[in-house]
């Protein structure tokens, strides 16, 4: 009898172990972009709480923020992206699928099992790498931009001679005025001299 009881106990234990076999999962979620920030937090918190309720452990929760979608999903062109990595009992995964399907704020989700030697790289680091990778391309782009700029400038010079001539005319007019202004006192002096001379002549 004792052996039987031990056997049954062992069986129960094995069943429990099987039921509590833990798998590592990754969840990517696109949340409705029209939600407010508070509601967005509610959505993400709801997911985290659900996992913790079901004897899971969250290792990563990364909010990517608002991103443009490559195509329309439920008539949305944008979406809040969020990624979670967590350990969860394997028999709870289908329930999680159902929960995510019924959640209203979630536009689309992807629940995956992770490979064993997986290291999560955060979105910020990926962005940084993209930023590092871009300048190499930009050097060539900058050169092209410079060429285009110089070309455009030369074109402007070629195509717009009129506006540059106008200020010249103005300057010419101003110079004439100045000459007139400067010439007036000279004339007065000349008049005076002439008068003197003429007067002198008349005196003769």
């Amino acid at each position: 009898m004792t052996t039987d009881t031990t056997a049954t106990k062992a069986k129960e234990e094995t069943v429990e172990e099987l039921s509590s076999a833990i798998g590592s999962y990754e969840l990517m979620v696109i949340i409705n972009p029209e939600l407010r920030e508070a509601d967005l937090k509610k959505e993400t918190d709801a997911i985290e709480k659900w996992v913790e309720k079901n004897k899971g452990k969250i290792s990563v929760s990364d909010l990517w923020g608002k991103r443009n979608l490559a195509y329309r999903i439920k008539q949305h062109l944008e979406g809040y992206y969020a990624v979670f990595n967590f350990a969860l009992p394997t028999d709870r995964a289908p329930a999680m699928n159902k929960m995510l399907r019924l959640e209203k704020g979630i536009i689309r989700y992807l629940l995956l099992t992770l490979p064993k030697d997986y290291v999560y790289v955060s979105y910020k680091e990926i962005k940084k790498e993209i930023g590092k990778a871009e300048p190499e391309k930009k050097v060539a782009e900058v050169v092209i931009e410079k060429k285009i700029k110089t070309a455009v400038e030369t074109r402007h010079v070629a195509s717009e001679p009129k506006p540059k001539e106008e200020p010249k005319k103005e300057t010419a007019a101003e110079e004439k005025k100045k000459e007139e202004k400067s010439a007036e006192p000279v004339d007065k002096d000349l008049d005076a001299k002439l008068d003197k001379i003429l007067g002198g002549n008349l005196d003769f």
């Binding site: 696109i30 490559a70 195509y71 999903i73 992807l110 995956l112």
Partner: peptide
Amino acid sequence: KRARFMATLPY
């Protein structure tokens, strides 16, 4: 195919 499904890459 996963990236396409999550709209980070177009079909």
